[in-house]
Amino acid sequence: MTVDDHARTLLQVCGLRKAYRTGKTEVVAVDDLSFSLRAGGALGIVGESGSGKTTTARMLIGLERPDAGQILVQGEPLAPTVRGRAARLARAKAVQIVFQDPYLSLDGRITVGATIDGALRLHGLADPAARTARTRELLAQVGLGEREAAALPRKLSGGQRQRAAIARALAVEPAVLVLDEAVSALDVSVQAQVLNLLSDIRRDTGIGLVFVSHDLAVVRYVCDEALVLYRGRTMEHRPVAELLSDPGHPYTQLLLASVPRPDWDPDSISRRRRELGPAAAGGGA
């Protein structure tokens, strides 16, 4: 791999594994996960609840330590433990996250503007006037104005809060932004606005997006390629359009069939889901 390739590959994940032990039983949450993300690229990680998507997201941002495997951001491996201020800030600049629940992901005691101001100050923007200007700029980028900046999170709607959370993540200027079910708690029209916003940000900043979701429609809208996870294992990893038009793995077909539409049949889906069972996990990837 050349130096040029390193610069353009924002995120490279190799052989990532994470298992949880409760007593003697071991549950493998993520097994042998590998993918890479180019600058300006968007990868969807799709799966049902318990498929290991959130564990993956938490490993990317350093809230969980992988048992095995490596995460490289712009060619630099993410340290398993972070000690000292410089290491913390470097880690923060590598990957940021937007959480699922906009009602709990902002500090209820602090205004949206002050939250972003705090992130900017931490990351070395010492001049208050410059911070104010940058805060305004970041909020404008996500479509929030002065009124929202001065408001406490509880005075804002779910969509506005999620925009504020995105602005907070962008304030750190990360290489990669992870979105963990970031639009799942929003209603459909607001979802569309936030998804448009994310597409715009991706185009304008060249940031890499990792979009964790159970919702294939959302993934199709934002991502170029998608990775289907089932019980911690990769079932398929292909361009989104191809994956949706011609799903290869039975689990992917099931996920597609599970989206409610006029000829939707919940009974047959739950039957097929049971038939799929744990055996499918072995035959994947």
């Binding site: 201020r85 923060a92 209820g108």
Partner: peptide, 14 residues
């Protein structure tokens, strides 16, 4: 357990 605390950590606060 609330994500806002995780968000502060991810942002690099001690």
């Amino acid at each position: 357990a609330r994500p806002y605390i995780a968000a502060y950590r991810v942002q690099g606060h001690s």
